[in-house]
Structure formats: structure tokens, C-alpha cells
Design a protein around this nucleic acid. Sequence first.
DNA 1: TAAATAGTGTCTATCAGACAATATGGT
DNA 2: ACCATATTGTCTGATAGACACTATTTA
Lengths: 218, 218
Amino acid sequence: MTICDNSSKTLTDYPRPSVAVDTAVLTVRGDQLSVLVVAHDKAPGFEWALPGTFLHEGERLADAVLRSLRDKAGITGRTPQQLYVFDDPARDPRGWVLSVAHVDMVPLKELERALENDGVKLLSVSDGVPGLPYDHTAIVERAMQWMRDQYEDQPDPGLLLEEPFTLRDLRMLHDAVKGEARQRDTFRRLMVASGEIMETGEMTGGGRGRPSRLWVRR
Amino acid sequence: MTICDNSSKTLTDYPRPSVAVDTAVLTVRGDQLSVLVVAHDKAPGFEWALPGTFLHEGERLADAVLRSLRDKAGITGRTPQQLYVFDDPARDPRGWVLSVAHVDMVPLKELERALENDGVKLLSVSDGVPGLPYDHTAIVERAMQWMRDQYEDQPDPGLLLEEPFTLRDLRMLHDAVKGEARQRDTFRRLMVASGEIMETGEMTGGGRGRPSRLWVRR
DNA sequence: TAAATAGTGTCTATCAGACAATATGGT
DNA sequence: ACCATATTGTCTGATAGACACTATTTA
């Protein structure tokens, strides 16, 4: 039991929801758009969930997100974006919990260390999102749509490619994000015309076929 | 004083924020993009603020928004969209309050009755947003950007025009939203090509100049 | 030489922007 | 007649999509 002093302010005269943050960390592994999930024991029947946490007193949402990524997935140095507030009063059987969903795009390389942990893994979402607890499936779907919109008109807004990269790398990244293939020559010209990538002057070597120019982001 | 039973669930073991909703109701009056504000006495020095309220127990955000619009501004029958969560712990001097900002575009006609009330008025925001309490200025700026994005590629997503309308009406609406003038002939063709408007077959009459075709939304 | 991949030429259809001509009504 | 406004013709430059050809490497 706790004593709550509700007499001094109108703010505390009525119940307040718990506020959580959940983050969809999206990446591309091979040709699969994927989301990071962490081991989870709070919702019966679901073993994996998006990393999330409750907002602490006086804490910024962005800080709660960083804390949850660090504590649950061992990820640091990111700045996820707000996506949407999921507010169904029944979304969490434990009680009244609003979730401010966040989203981030992270290069696979940056996730490698985190993925060594048994409690962290990637879930491919290219062919639909598997069952996740609460409304995490809806969060992931909205996050995917957000990411697709991001990639619609920019070469690599998520900085997912290691530099330098070839236009083939870039096209395969786009194909994975969008879930469908784009035309090679048109794609090349769109990317070059965007002004967002620059030639390095170097070429690939050692692979099959004609060597390819190497590029970096502007 | 109130007794709070915190022993049974972890959810209530720590403080929770108050959650508010604030709504930027945008409209166009004449050539001015405007936002609806209501009389306000909670923040000293500020007489007008966006309509908002605290989220009640078990309530959906959307329902809280509707309640605040009805109670503070006498507006009903709308479905505002989520915009962004403003979460600075110091944004409200009364305490820890998150605000889930919402936005809606409402035809002036629908606001006329609400505006008869002394506690409700429109504030022109075409030339910058005047001082508003809390972070309402930031909310309005984000809402304006959202509305401009909406109008970027659609004739009248906010359904602000009374039907039927002329292409001149539509262009002046766009000019007001964007804050700059668009070319008459190009604009006409873009709008017609969008397929989002249809000719009625009727013409205007009585004004100066050549009569104009009348259009409705698809 | 064959296979594989990279890069370019070019045609076409579309479209936005701009200018200007024409149409039609009010004053 | 003149002005204000609406509507359309047309030119230009840019662009996306598509197809096909050329280029360069490894096996």
C-alpha cells in the first residue's frame, strides 16, 4: 500500500495511464526486411516481443527508448523516431498502458554484437509479420510502411549500407525494403540524379562480371 | 488523501504521467490559414490556447479529443488525426503532462456556430504563430506542416471548399495553405489530371469576367 | 568463348512550367 | 470599348520507364 497525496493539484485527481515505449528496430539481412525482437516472458504464449519499457518519472520518451534498447537489446548510439501512440485500453492485459511506438533503421553490422545474445534475434517480416504480443504486430506493420515511405525517394535514408557500395547493393537493398524488384537502369539513373550519392573513383574487383563503380553517400 | 493499492501489480509501482490531448483545428478564412483557439485561464499571461483535455480512465485518445472539441469549442462530428507526442517534462508548469497533439482540417462553415461563442476564435497563422501557452506554438507549427504536406498532391484533402467550387476557389485555397501563389494554368491542369475533381456542367454567373466552370470532389 | 554483371544510348510517353492567345461576361 | 477573369493552345525542358546495345571481368 502506498499513500498518494492527491489533494494539492487537480492533475492528480484522477487516474493516469502507464505510458510505455516500444521500438521497431528495422534492418535488412540479405534480401529480407527484418525487425529486432527480444525474449519476453510477460505475455503468456509469446516468447518474443519488441523491446520496450515503461516511461520513468520525468523521463523523455526518447530517453526511455534509448534505455530499453540498451537494457533489452544491448543497442546504443541510436535516435529512433516517434511513430504512433497505440492507445487501446485493452491492448495490455496487465492494465491501462499507452504505448508510444518508435521506429529506427539500423545497419545489420551495428546489430551483430547485440544478436550474439540469446535473448535477441531478428524476425523476417518480408512475407508478413508473425504473431507478436499486445499490438506489436500492428506496430511493426506501421513501422514497415514508414520505412518504405522513407526509401521511396531517397537512396539510403537508414544508412543501412556499408560504404563504399555498388549500385547493385543499393538496388538489392531497395528491393528488400519494398518487397519487389526495380528496373536496373532506371533505378541507377534515379539514384544518381538524386544527388545523394557520390562516386569514389574506385571499382570493385574479384567478383564475377564487369567491375562496378563504388559509391558513398553524400 | 487517497489510498492507492499498489501492491498487486508492477504497473502501479512507479509514478505515471498525466496524459493530455491538444488539437490544432486548422481552417482557411479568406486567404488566411488559421487555427482555432479557446479562452484559457490556466497558464498566467496567456488568454488563448488550443482546445485540449486530460485523458480519462480507459478512454481512447480519439475520444478525449472529441470530448475536448465538444466541451471547449462546441465542435462535433470530426475525426482528428494523431500528430505527435510532446513530452518535455517541463512543458506544463502544473506537473508532468504528456500531450498527444492532434490535428484536423475543418471547413469554415462548420466552425461558424462555434465561433459565435466568445470563448472561441480563429487565429491567423499565415505569417507566423503568435504566442500560445505551453508548447502550443510548436504544435501549431507541426500541424501546419502536416496540412501543407496533405495539400501538396491532392485538390482538397480537408474538404474545406463548399461544393460546387471554381478552380479559382481551389487555387486560392492552395495559395492560402501554402502561403505562396501558384501559376493559374499549371494549377488547373494538375488538379484536373488528379482525377479527384469532377465538372458539374454548371457555370458561375454574376461575377466579373468570364463565367467559370463549377466542380465537385470525386 | 560463354556467362555474368555493369554501364550507356535512345525512344517514348508524360508532365510541369511558362507564355500567350482566345472567350465571355460586367461596367 | 475596356477590364477582369476563365479557359485553352502550345512550346520547352525534364523525367520515368522500357528495351537493347556495349563493356569488362571471371570461369
